[in-house]
Design a protein around this nucleic acid. Structure first.
Lengths: 183, 183
DNA sequence: TCGATTATGACGATCGGTCTACATGTGGCA
DNA sequence: TGCCACATGTAGACCGATCGTCATAATCGA
């Protein structure tokens, strides 16, 4: 038998990477299986509901990675302005590293599946809520009222998602870095 | 012979509508042809380069429609804050009318094709630049310095695009309406 | 050793975008 | 006017890829 954890994990990681670059619908299961190195037939063993389950897992994984990044910046920067700058710099770095070809894996997949796929939509909503929670926490600790902190955090997330699109189209990190001016 | 203008136009309008709801890759040419009422074989007559040309035309059409809407609001509202509220209300109305299933047709298509398809990417960049020009103009006429006006306008566009995604996931117009707070 | 569970490669029905071969209508020439 | 060459418009068939299922093989527990 193959190594379950490795095969399953490779499948999800590869799916996340490809969805991010090519989109959800444009990425074939065949390509995911091939690039992950997992055996072809095993995909439906680990993910009985097929592509949708894979998409859900990829969104959840990506959401967690972004959240961890946000939390790391949050403990380092108490000042919202400094926090946003660090956040923006990180995202800009990811974008430049991919040569402006890979956006946010959560947004890319969600735009294509929400609300048609309830499970992916739910996974995406949970991921985004997590980000808003972390960002809102930074604002709150800086003295912003809880309700307004949450609204501002939501605005930051929206602006960042949009900025990632603009950055890809323009091949420039400028839109991403400008999000930091929201503080 | 069929009515060229009508068939070609119907093709593009239908493509725009379907790309917006289902995404670019998920929408088949067959469905576009069927729902547009145009004859099946005529698609490659009007669009020799196939789906990509159709996507480019759809993006350009959608970009123009949004720009017209923005210009209509711009002549009515000199105050940036009032302008943004009107803009946000219109977008929120579109989103609610579609039962939270259709986002921005430009963003949806662009996220899936940029920068893989140069022609669609270019069409999208031009559309977005047009919006920024109009929004920036409102800020400028309110006394904001040209450079900063453009940056702010870009931020508004990014925030709106992101808000459209959040609205779909949450089934709520709140994220869209909150964009007006950027003034 | 044997049964049960896990894992897998091959297969098939369907649909994808694209192209080629054929109607249809139009204008020039005798 | 009668006929033909041409551009325009159209339908169907093409090949490849799609996702999902199946019968079979490998491994584990008793």
């Amino acid at each position: 038998m193959g190594d379950v954890a490795t095969h399953k994990e490779n499948l999800v990681r590869t799916a996340m990477r490809l969805f991010r670059r090519q989109g959800y619908a444009s990425t074939g299961l065949q390509q995911i299986v091939a690039e992950s190195g997992a055996p072809k037939g095993s995909l439906y063993h680990y993910f009985p509901s097929g592509k949708e389950a894979l998409g859900e897992a990829a969104v959840t994984l990506a959401g967690g990675l972004v959240r961890e990044m946000l939390e790391a910046h949050a403990v380092k920067h108490a000042d919202p302005s400094a926090f946003l700058r660090a956040y923006a710099r990180t995202m800009a770095g990811w974008m430049a590293d991919s040569d402006f070809r890979s956006g946010c894996p959560v947004a890319t997949t969600l735009l294509e599946t929400a609300p048609a796929s309830p499970t992916i939509t739910a996974a995406g909503a949970q991921a985004i809520d997590g980000w808003i929670e972390v960002i809102g926490g930074v604002f709150e600790r800086a003295g912003v009222e809880p309700r307004e902190a949450r609204t501002k955090a939501q605005l930051v997330v929206a602006a960042m998602e949009g900025a990632l699109l603009l950055a890809r189209v323009r091949r420039s990190t400028r839109p991403i870095l400008d999000v930091a001016k929201l503080a």
